[in-house]
């Protein structure tokens, strides 16, 4: 059976590449520290020598729109183009082509259906920065095949936090059951408190630093019960109108299992709290 070698959950800040590659004299003061933290985080993946990456993200109205809007979708294609024109324009993110793994995508899709997660699928999926940002940060050579999974964190009504956690558990079961000797890493991104297009955007901190501190502690200790007792759609909206990206962290904790993280780091940037978590698989976590 395949082996899950690492579960990574982080924020995805689309300006990382631009902020750390522009001429030094124009860089923000935190850029060197940010780069050091990202490189340390990258090492938590590199050392596990993965063969395939299961990538969890959320399309930001790039391929997916309100005319046809799935809650959960899996890519099943031989390869994936990435980065849309408006992401190049706004964030300076280059285009990529990622290899797919149709066999694993097909297996995951069926296994998730068998676990009562009725996934939508796409045979021609162009992926956006929610999946390319972590490629840039933790696998910048973009040299591994991916199985992309998209969740809806954007267009209400959204699935519940418990549903996201249970989906993470189901993804873990599907990875563990995959008949292959490959080493799998699961990499997901989302947000802590975040405001976009509202009165609390682009402040000195994220819109709810208290939530950010609490969320990091919950994830550090793997305390899913505390998360489910305290976080719902209304509470996330109070913490910032785009805070629902936290649902992907809940999903990733489901992949890891309710365990303390093996690696935790964070960085207070000018309008968000960035956070980076890695769990290494333990025998009894599945």
């Amino acid at each position: 059976m395949a082996q899950l070698v690492a579960t990574l959950a982080s924020t995805h800040h689309p300006f990382y590449l631009k902020a750390t590659t522009m001429p030094r004299e124009q860089q923000m003061p935190q850029a060197p520290e940010w780069k050091r933290k990202i490189e340390a985080y990258r090492e938590t993946l590199t050392r596990t020598k993965p063969d395939i990456l299961v990538m969890i993200g959320s399309d930001h109205f790039h391929q997916i729109f309100l005319d046809n809007c799935p809650q959960f979708l899996i890519g099943k294609a031989p390869r994936y183009d990435a980065t849309f024109y408006n992401e190049e324009r706004e964030f300076g993110i280059p285009k990529y082509v990622l290899e797919g793994d149709e066999a694993m995508s097909g297996f995951m899709h069926q296994h998730l259906m068998d676990q009562d997660f009725d996934f939508a699928f796409s045979n021609e999926l162009k992926i956006d920065h929610s999946i390319i940002c972590p490629i840039i940060t933790v696998r910048p050579d973009a040299d591994l095949p991916v199985v992309p999974i998209y969740t809806n964190i954007f267009a209400p009504p959204l699935p519940s936090p418990r549903r996201f956690y249970n989906l993470g558990r189901a993804i873990r079961k599907a990875i563990d059951a995959y008949p292959s000797d490959k080493r799998i890493a699961a990499i997901g991104t989302g947000h802590l408190s975040l405001e976009l297009g509202g009165p609390r955007q682009f402040m000195e901190t994220g819109p709810d630093p208290e939530f950010d501190r609490q969320a990091i502690e919950w994830l550090r200790s793997g305390d899913i019960e505390a998360i489910l007792a305290n976080v719902d759609h209304e509470s996330m909206a109070k913490s910032g109108n785009a805070t629902h990206g936290f649902l992907n962290f809940i999903l990733m904790l489901g992949v890891a299992g309710p365990e303390a993280a093996d690696y935790v780091d964070n960085l207070d940037l000018f309008h968000t709290m960035e956070a980076y978590f890695t769990w290494y698989a333990k025998e009894d976590a599945a």
């Binding site: 309100l66 509202g198 009165p199 682009f202 109108n241 000018f270």
Partner: peptide, 25 residues
Amino acid sequence: PLAFQKEFAAKLQHWAGKEYPSVAT
């Protein structure tokens, strides 16, 4: 940097602390 984004936020200050209009469709 961010001058437009900050002006955007400033023009919406009357919504701070209130429930925002729903984006549900």
